[in-house]
Each structure stands twice: as C-alpha cells, then as structure tokens.
Design a protein around this nucleic acid. Structure first.
Length: 268
DNA sequence: AACACGACCTGGTAGC
DNA sequence: TGCTACCAGGTCGTGT
C-alpha cells in the first residue's frame, strides 16, 4: 500500500531514467485508469519531454516541456499501482494499464492490478486544482507545529480520519497513521480538537519520524529485491499481539469502513 | 462547510 | 478439491 515513503522511494528509483527523455507515444489499455479523461486526451503528451519529477502528497507529477496546454502528467498509484521503465519489446505484466513509449525504445509502464490508481494529463487549471487540495508535506520545513495545531483545532474528526485526509497534511495513509498515533499515545477515535497540546506535540514529532524510518526501509527494499516490509510496525496488522510498550493486546476496530489498529491501554 | 458513506477494483485466503 | 465470503484501502461522488 503505497503511502508517502513508498512513493518517494519510487521517484528516486525512476527519476534518472525518465528525466530529459521524450514521449513518443501512449497506449491506454484500460480507459478507466485515465478517468475522468479519455484515452485520446493522453495523446496531448506525445512529443513532449519529461523535464522533472515531483512528489505531491501521494501523487507523482511528471513536469513536461514545452509547458503549453498540457503541463504535467499526474500519477496516483491507488492501492496496487507500480511504475517501471523497460526496454521494448518485451512482455508486459498482466495488470498493465498505461504505457508511454520513450526515446531509445524504452517503455514507461503503469501497472495496476486492482485499477484504483489514475494517470491524468494536467493543464494549468488541473494542476492548480490538485495543488489546492493537497496539504503540507510532513517531511518539509513547512510542517511546523503551529500548522498542525491550527488544523487540529478546526476539526472534530477522529484523530485517525484527520490524519488520513490529504487536504491538511498530505501523504499519510492507513499504515503510518496507526504507527504515528501509537507513538504519540493518541486514541484514534478521539476527536482531534480534544487532543492535548502535549500529545499534539508528540504527534508532530512522530509523523516525520515514522515516515523517515519507512522511507529508509523502502529505499532498502528497492536496493535488495526480496526483502519485505518497509519498517517494523508496532501496531499495524498486529491484532491480538502484545503492545511493545505496555504489553496489552492490540485491537482492531473499524473506522469509516477501514481497519484501525491501536493499543487500548496506552493510547488514550 | 464539514462530515459520513457506498462504490470502485481483484488477488489472496480462511472456512466449510 | 472446489466453492463462497470476506478482507485489503485511497479517492471520489452523493447525501445530510
């Protein structure tokens, strides 16, 4: 499940292969993967150069040159999306959804078994709209405590759902939300505006700490294929196991139709 | 405006 | 062995 660290590691892996290459063609093998656009709309990227790559929350932006009409390609991996560059012609995986043909007979492949990911061609309006609904990056200098405190004070959402939203703080998903709340000892069901200042401070430290740890793990995974999980989870996916801090049994509950893992004893 | 909730999508697996 | 039911979860559109 790609969240901020996995996307960041992916970008670092493919950046040098994509930068300064030209798009020669596009094949959309599953129209829904470019929705709400049509496969034909993707053709506006043909002939352009990929100038740079940027991560925006969980989105990957490929900035194009010349930056006229269509400025960027936006890719969201959804649950099961992956990206890689390979030489043509060779067999493409079963879940292949979009293929960009690059110079040098190389193919830039978007693979996505479950089809929840998206690839879109963005004009200026589309790019502006996207940036507007993606909040601050928790690994950037802009992620100061006051920003978290202000946003938290304005929302009555349960802490878990507040962190999952991409509009205030971007890039955190189900796994790292669980870990950050555990580290800060916050009950995931507690309304975020009723969490103490002390615990909000702990959360402000826990979020980047968790993400940096996971990023290290994700970079390692790419170097050494076959090694698995990004990091050791304290609570995520560990229903019934002991809390590493207090020894109580970790619980799994449902919030907004999604599973939440937490320690009922030391997260209050 | 803020929030809740179902739909989308398919592979893996638990249970019978 | 073969079948069914359920689970994984990010985002978007719709309804309150």
């Amino acid at each position: 499940m790609p969240e901020l660290p996995e996307i960041e590691a992916l970008i670092r892996r493919i950046r040098s292969e994509l930068t300064d290459t030209r798009i020669r063609g596009v094949q959309v093998t599953r129209p829904r993967s470019v929705a709400p656009q049509s496969p034909a709309a993707m053709e506006a990227t043909i002939g352009k150069k990929i100038a740079s790559l940027e991560r925006l929350g969980k989105n990957l932006l490929l900035h194009l040159a010349p930056a006229k009409e269509v400025l960027a390609i936006r890719i969201h991996l959804g649950m099961t999306g992956d990206l890689f560059v390979q030489q043509a012609p060779s067999e493409l995986p079963k879940g292949t959804r979009v293929v960009f043909e690059l110079t040098g007979k190389r193919l830039f492949v978007f693979e996505d078994v479950r089809g929840l990911g998206r690839v879109n061609a963005l004009d200026q309006a589309g790019l502006t709209k996207l940036r507007k609904r993606i909040g601050v990056d928790p690994l950037s200098r802009a992620f100061i405590f006051e920003l978290l405190a202000t946003a938290a004070g304005r929302s009555r959402k349960p802490a878990k759902l507040f962190l999952m939203g991409q509009d205030r703080i971007a890039g955190i998903g189900n796994m790292y939300t669980a870990e950050a709340l555990w580290r800060a000892r916050i009950d995931p069901r507690k309304p975020i505006n009723s969490v103490s200042k002390q615990k909000l401070k702990a959360l402000h430290e826990a979020i980047p700490a968790v993400l940096r740890e996971a990023l290290k793990g994700a970079l390692r995974t790419y170097e050494k294929p076959g090694s698995h999980d990004s990091m050791n989870f304290a609570v995520y996916g560990r229903k019934g196991e002991r809390c590493p801090r207090c020894g109580a049994a970790i619980q799994r509950i449902e919030q907004a139709g999604r599973s939440t893992y937490y320690c009922p004893r030391c997260q209050q």
